[in-house]
Write a protein that binds this DNA or RNA. Structure first.
Lengths: 215, 215
DNA sequence: CCCCAACCTTACTGGCGAGTAAGGTTACGT
DNA sequence: ACGTAACCTTACTCGCCAGTAAGGTTGGGG
């Protein structure tokens, strides 16, 4: 009848379309529950194409992981690189992160919310991308120590702070979903506000005293 | 040969054994990849028993969810309840949380690291348990506002802080796995240190100025 | 002693989904 | 024009796993 046959498309383009579709489905269903048929259908293609271009379900997932990890890290570095003080770099990095997640929610889910271990290769790639993001943040925190205090930076305290920041940011991702109006700028602002002062406390060694109002 | 026949055991006990096993497997493999056979085997029992006692795979998962959510919340409330100031209550709550996660890592994974949506009932239960934990933390934060400032507490700022805290704590769970020596007390201390001062900033309304060293 | 209820098993079915075999169609270079 | 390589499909196989049917064992109350 209506001769809308499926458009023929060159391989690199098709690959990206498949990966786009895969990210949506993997994010919705999780790795195991996602079916290659469904991904193929969303990509407007039939299943064997997926296997021809990406080898296997695992290969497809790895391709998603690699592409999105690259994107996020690039965005983060591009934002945090040029700023002048460590504080401003961290701010810019966080803003880039929240912007990225706002625009690519599914990517973040695929990258960071996968508890199970589908296969060694996937576990490794997942670990790698997380490590790289953490390393980036840890670097910023370290830079801050170096600049302000000088010596005696406590070994893993920078890492501790980085974990706290990344975890907070991840969780705030959910908060954003509940408050669609909030712009990434405001969230960044509040988080910086909340965390910047305290970071110094931790990095200078703990000084917590049982506090204010003990009746 | 050796006549170690499987012990006969009353129903309520067996149910708990099955749930224990299920939590381990669900945490390791995720909901979909976990097989009921494997759970049954780990529980020292055959598959039909699982269906007899827990109805279905979904029912089994729900039972895990309910039992562990209950445990965690109870531990949290028991710790946070008796302390005197909001600050001490929060500290005690966090300590209880880190202690719980140290002792029941799998439970936390099952409760909080499930991105996919296996079924409406599971999604609902998962959402419920998270909401309750968040509500508990939000309550502590609110109480703090009320005590110190008085009026004009910003609507969702308490919620914002709660999300930050829970996310940070969750992420620090991974950090703990990397540093097996660290006792929950030290982690709690550092987190309080890092976050307590800044919380006030956020709750009093944002006051962030582009900072210190702008060359 | 003997029976019934609670406990437990082996041995199936049925469907879903990863991966594949075999071949059809269009663009493009010559 | 026409062949060939790139693009794409229909129609399977095969294994895994949720869920079930049918029946075996044991202890404790009459």
């Amino acid at each position: 009848m209506s001769d809308i046959r499926r458009q023929r498309v060159p391989r690199p383009v098709r690959e990206q379309q498949i990966i786009d579709a895969a990210i949506r489905i993997f994010a919705r269903r999780g790795y195991h529950a996602a079916s290659v048929d469904e991904i193929a259908e969303l990509a407007g293609i039939s299943k064997p194409m997926v296997y021809l271009y990406l080898d296997s379900k695992e290969g497809l997932f790895l391709a998603c992981l690699r592409r999105e990890a690259e994107r996020l890290l690039t965005a983060f570095r591009a934002a945090a690189g040029p700023a002048h003080s460590p504080e401003l770099r961290l701010r810019a990095g966080l803003l880039a992160f929240f912007t990225f997640v706002t625009e690519h929610r599914d990517s973040w889910v695929v990258l960071h919310r996968q508890s199970s271990e589908p296969s060694p290769a996937i576990t490794a790639e997942l670990a790698r991308s997380r490590r790289e993001l953490l390393a980036e943040v840890t670097g910023l925190v370290r830079a801050d120590i170096a600049e302000s205090d000088g010596p005696a930076c406590p070994e893993d305290d920078a890492e501790f702070v980085a974990y706290t920041l990344v975890g907070a940011a991840d969780s705030l991702t959910d908060w954003m979903a509940l408050h669609p109006g909030e712009p990434p700028e405001r969230i960044t602002l509040r988080l910086m506000n909340m965390v910047w002062v305290g970071m110094r406390n931790v990095l200078d060694g703990e000084v917590w005293t049982t506090p204010s109002g003990t009746p």
